[in-house]
Design a protein around this nucleic acid. Structure first.
Length: 242
DNA sequence: GCGACAG
DNA sequence: ATCTTGTCGC
């Protein structure tokens, strides 16, 4: 019989955190779940400076019906890559605006579980609280993982805002029902801005600070660019053997 | 009723 | 998101 040190045994147990809820739900049930889970989201300053940051993205294959979820981790600061993990499967929920997490969170969580070293914060290619029910994919992932998360989307889901100046670094608040839920940031001069919003265990200021420090010469923050290209690379590779 | 609508 | 041809610019 294998013996396990008590401390290690405890770590194994806490790693097997049970799912917050079932993923086999109808769109109506998903909406109800979001309303309930949104109350558990904690908006607060990011605590200690991270040692590792992670980023997620998903690529889809039209012809094969498969999706390719990827999570990449990086040292902080410096952003030297550490690990890349993935999970390939079929989508089990349709794309419905406002319900993206029920389509993308399960495969992302599968990929995430393959990481040997977990990140201290996860950058998400989606909205956080800048969502009709304040529960975008970034919130859902952060809550499931019990980890700080930041939403960084390429386009708007909801809310209103003024257009930030064309200069890189310019920004405007994103409002929803009179409340600021995000930041519209010109991450690169002269191009369409990106939409930043807190996911979980993070706030507006911390979210923006993190994204700012992930910006290079491109519109998309470096960790998300990497996750995106890795997901596409994986898709092309697998499509080539089908 | 008519638009808007992360990926 | 994916598909898809050319085109504009560094």
């Amino acid at each position: 019989m294998h013996r396990l040190p008590l401390v290690r045994f405890f770590e194994v147990c806490v790693d097997l955190n049970p799912e917050l809820h079932s993923w086999s739900v109808t769109p109506k049930e998903a909406v109800a779940l979001q309303r309930s889970l949104a109350a558990q989201v904690r908006i607060e300053p990011l605590g200690l400076r991270p040692r590792i940051v992670g980023a997620e993205d998903i690529s889809y294959s039209r012809r094969s019906d498969l999706l390719f979820a990827v999570v990449v981790t990086f040292k902080w600061p410096g952003l030297d890559p550490i690990e890349t993990v993935n999970h390939v499967c079929k989508a089990s929920f349709p794309y419905v605006p406002g319900l993206l997490s029920f389509r993308e969170a399960p495969p992302i969580l599968e990929a995430f579980s393959k990481l040997r070293q977990k990140p201290d914060v996860l950058l998400c290619d989606a909205q956080g609280i800048a969502h009709p029910r304040r529960f975008g994919l970034a919130c859902h992932l952060g809550l499931c993982l019990g980890l700080p998360s930041v939403g960084c989307a390429k386009s708007r889901l909801c809310g209103s805002h003024a257009d930030p100046l064309m200069k890189k670094g310019s920004s405007k608040p994103l409002f929803l029902n009179g409340e600021q839920v995000g930041i519209v940031l010109r991450s690169k001069e002269g191009v369409k801005p990106i939409y930043i919003s807190p996911g979980h265990l993070c706030d507006l200021k911390s979210s923006r600070k993190l994204v700012d420090r992930c910006l290079g010469r491109y519109r998309i923050p470096e960790p998300l660019r990497r996750a995106h290209s890795e997901a596409n690379r994986l898709r092309v590779e697998i499509e080539s053997v089908l």
